[in-house]
């Protein structure tokens, strides 16, 4: 029923009740029409997501109940592989490696980015444009190229050990010592990602009205008071976004350890994705099902971590600035 139909169908009634009813119907019809347009607009995405995300996910869960062989009939094993993954110390170690890497890179990256963004904000328009381009440059460098560059820098005769040599220390076995390898990988990790973080934080900073700071200054607020009472609370939603995406991306790190250390030494840099990838490379049917189930478990773990971050940092609607 269209809005026009409703107008025709309802007899003219001068009473206030009739007017209200007519308005309500008109609103309802408009609401339905809006809904239909909205459904039409999201339909392509829903269809594509169903084909490429939802269905593969459901099918993966189904497949994870089999020991998959590409040459023989798959053997139904129920939830055995879930137990194998949960039992596997190497799976949990890889989750810890991922979390440790995220802890090393995400807060550090955000602090550096916040400092840089604050600095850029104080610059003139021209200098700020130059700085923004410079800061963003690492983000367009290929991870593979960065990995290879850092591998050279970390060699015994590399530039980092050369600098340590000037201070009469080292050489440090950066990539082949279980204690140093992950922090050594975290450095290019931070370098590659802080450009985008800086730009996002800068946009958030520029969104905070200047008069908040002016009045705070008039009231005698110092730098730290302004930072903790104005900047950080007003950047809360931006920071939440950066923490959640940063953590989930960091835990899923793959290329850097693959190229720089291949997960070693002694699994010290085997992140969950690399662990799953290496499990998949094994040519047994066991390995195929195990890596598939481990991927599904990682999906659950990542969801749980995101949930915890959301809970820890309560998301509020932006306070109108």
């Amino acid at each position: 029923m269209t809005a026009l139909d409703s107008r025709v169908a309802v007899p003219a009634d001068p009473a206030p009740d009739g007017v209200a009813q007519r308005d309500r119907r008109r609103l309802l019809a408009r609401h339905r029409r809006d809904n239909r347009t909205a459904y039409l607009m999201i339909a392509p995405m829903v269809v594509l997501l169903s084909i490429f995300v939802v269905w593969p996910l459901i099918y993966s869960v189904y497949l994870s109940t089999f020991k998959i062989s590409f040459y023989e009939e798959p053997e139904f094993v129920g939830l055995d592989f879930y137990q194998y993954v949960l039992d596997s110390p190497r799976f949990w170690e890889s989750i810890w490696v991922g979390l440790y890497y995220a802890l090393l890179t995400v807060p550090t990256g955000i602090v550096i980015a916040l400092l840089l963004a604050s600095f850029i904000k104080t610059l003139s328009r021209r200098a700020a444009a130059y700085m923004k381009t410079t800061v963003y440059l690492p983000a367009v460098v290929s991870t593979v190229v960065a990995s290879v560059l850092f591998v050279f820098m970390y060699q015994d005769e590399g530039v980092i050990n050369w600098m340590l040599g000037l201070l009469n220390s080292g050489p440090v076995n950066w990539l082949n010592d279980p204690g140093y390898a992950l922090p050594a990988i975290a450095v290019p990790g931070i370098w590659l990602s802080f450009g985008i973080t800086t730009l996002i934080l800068l946009a958030g900073l520029l969104d905070i009205p200047e008069n908040y700071y002016e009045s705070a200054q008039l009231d005698g607020a110092g730098f730290f008071q302004r930072l903790f009472r104005i900047t950080i609370p007003l950047l809360k939603n931006v920071l939440l976004y950066l923490f959640v995406t940063g953590f989930t991306l960091a835990i899923q790190l793959f290329e850097l350890p693959l190229i720089m250390t291949n997960g070693g030494p002694v699994d010290a840099t085997t992140t969950p994705n690399l662990y799953i990838f290496n499990s998949f490379r094994d040519l047994t049917p066991y390995a195929t099902s195990f890596s598939l189930t481990a991927s599904l478990m990682l999906f659950v773990v990542l969801g749980a971590i995101s949930l915890v971050i959301f809970r820890l940092v309560n998301s509020d609607k932006a306070i109108d600035g």
Partner: peptide, 20 residues
């Protein structure tokens, strides 16, 4: 035997070598 067994033993040697 499956590669996992060889890898487990190789990792043990590496662990001892590198002081893990």
């Amino acid at each position: 035997y499956p590669w996992d067994i060889s890898l487990a033993f190789g990792t043990a040697i590496e662990s001892a070598m590198k002081g893990k």
